[in-house]
Amino acid sequence: MTTVAERARPALAFFDVDETVIAHKSMVEFWEYWLARNPSRVPEQVGDLRAEAAASRNRAALNRRYYRRYAGVPLADLEAAGRRWYETYRRGDAAFVRAAVDAVAGHRAAGHEVILVSGSMMPLLEPLAQELGAAGVLCTELVVRSDGALTGEVHRPMIGESKAEAAVRTMRERGVDPSDCFAYGDHESDLALLRAVGNPVVVGSSRVLNEEAERSGWMVVPAGRGPLRLESA
């Protein structure tokens, strides 16, 4: 028999962010925004980020290299720039994945806690989390010097297995049953996260994820893009 305490225990819904909730890669979009406004702060010998991302198969190593671009930047400056970038980004007519934003609203209406899980950084994710009403963010954590500036290093990229481990840890801390929880992802690097819960949802057309969805009976939703609409949240 289900007890009152068990009924009150919330389920969690974990959402990858880039190309799952928002329609683009936040780190790339923000870098181009930052580059245009802070040319004097860009390290020498920094190559084209889109080309580097396309050529790399090791997402964790790429994640670490990305954050080294911000070595020496005060965290407060990056946070302010992240808020300004998001305020511009959120107005785009094709900035969000419609099915995922609708799912966020549906989970919140059902009383579930929404948790964003991303290799991106808090200065970019916090404004999004606030707007969506997310209860938490699991992301790549930046190493900050005693003077408040970034070292350029990170504690651990929130990529691949790290997402699953963080989700499992969060479910244990919240005292929820993984079989009651949900996860949404668009890329094969989200596979471990999807397998960590009882209700995985594939967003979009990743061959690896769609094949797994067909084998395992997972839900698949389209990655159609549109503007941000929160009326049902």
Rank of each mutant, 00 (worst) to 15 (best):
G152A: 06
V203G: 02
D16F: 05
F15I: 04
A192V: 09
S120Y: 00
A8G: 09
S232T: 13
A100I: 07
L142T: 03
A53E: 15
F182Y: 15
R195L: 14
L116C: 07
P178R: 05
L132I: 12
C139T: 10
S146T: 14
M1W: 11
V17G: 00
L191Y: 10
R59D: 14
V46Y: 06
R91W: 07
E153T: 13
A166R: 03
G119I: 01
V201Y: 09
Y33E: 08
A223M: 06
N210I: 01
E32H: 14
P157E: 13
L209R: 03
R59S: 14
E153F: 05
E79Q: 15
A164R: 09
A54N: 13
S146M: 08
V221Q: 02
S179D: 15
R68W: 12
A164T: 06
A76P: 11
A81S: 15
A166N: 06
L142Y: 02
P74S: 03
M171D: 01
A36N: 10
A60N: 05
Q130G: 13
R69C: 05
L124R: 00
L209F: 10
R215M: 07
D147S: 05
A135C: 06
S206V: 01
E211V: 10
E131Q: 14
T3V: 04
E126F: 02
G198W: 11
D48Y: 07
C181F: 00
A100V: 07
A103L: 05
R90G: 07
G72R: 06
R68I: 04
D18P: 00
V197H: 03
H112C: 09
D77P: 10
Y70W: 12
H155T: 14
R225F: 08
G204V: 03
W34K: 06
L228Q: 04
M1Y: 12
E126Y: 04
I22L: 10
V220G: 00
E212K: 05
T3M: 03
A103D: 04
L193I: 10
E52K: 02
V137A: 02
G224M: 03
L35G: 10
A95L: 07
V203P: 09
E113S: 12
S40L: 13
L62Y: 14
A213D: 09
A166F: 03
L228C: 11
A103Y: 04
V201A: 09
C181P: 00
V137P: 01
L142V: 04
Y89L: 08
N38G: 04
V137D: 01
A23F: 03
V28Y: 00
V143H: 12
R169L: 11
R91L: 15
P227I: 05
A95M: 09
Y33G: 02
V154I: 13
V46T: 14
A55Q: 14
L128A: 06
E153W: 05
M219T: 14
E214A: 15
L209K: 08
T140L: 02
